[in-house]
Write a protein that binds this DNA or RNA. Sequence first.
DNA 1: AACAATGTTCAGTC
DNA 2: GGACTGAACATTGT
Length: 261
Amino acid sequence: MPELPEVEAARTVLAGALRRRITDVDDRDDWVCRPHRPGDIAAALKGGRLTGAHRIGKTMWCDTATADGDAGPALGVHLGMGGRIVVTDSAAQRPRQGTREAGWDRFTVTFDDGGRLRLVDKRRLGRVRLDPDLSGLGPDAEGLAPAVFRERLLRGRAAVKTRLLDQSVIAGVGNLLADETLWQARIDPRSRVRDLTRTDLDRLHRNLDRALERAIAHGGVHTGEVIEHRRPGGHCPRCGAELAHGTVGGRSTWWCPRDQA
DNA sequence: AACAATGTTCAGTC
DNA sequence: GGACTGAACATTGT
């Protein structure tokens, strides 16, 4: 699920776990917590608190304070392809042992009130790490100035969808949001950015803003207008043409061959 | 059984 | 060295 709108919702959930003392950390999943070793994250966090929840694109992190109140390492969290953040307020809300969901817990922080912060991720592509490197991320996709959007996209020559998906160009756009935005803007995902006019790029930017706003308001990128039609035999909800399917930027891509030309 | 999946990263190529 | 491409990653659902 997670693209910018979902991750922003997850960040809000994270923010509900701030200020409580950390009594235990389960970081035994060495794949999700790589390159740390089991126990490293626990040692860094136990006795301290989470003090802030932030996000750029699809990457989240929490500020931390140590038991002494000094600044601790940041706790980076990425949801990968399907991770979720679940915060409970007390022991009473813990998932029962043996519950299916409990089997997908990849990282857990337990607080002194019995509440927990869990990364639930069946695909195990989520990541947790201390002091995550954010230097490779471009500016967050929300609230970009039109000139910045144009300038950053035009730095490369790949297909426009590939540029949108590149997190170092702008951060937060995923596969569904890219397809929705390009469909709304009536731009062929395979177009080279250098072949687009300034008018095209500004229209693309406006539609990215709208798609983001809409997804946040409606509860996720899956609520996009064209998303439900992204399947074999799906038709364009605007003109009725059968959607075309292919691979762009290494990702499954659906577009209307009639009005995204 | 084979393949695709809302993401990132790494090795290889130009 | 930078930009770009495709496979790999772990796991589930179809």
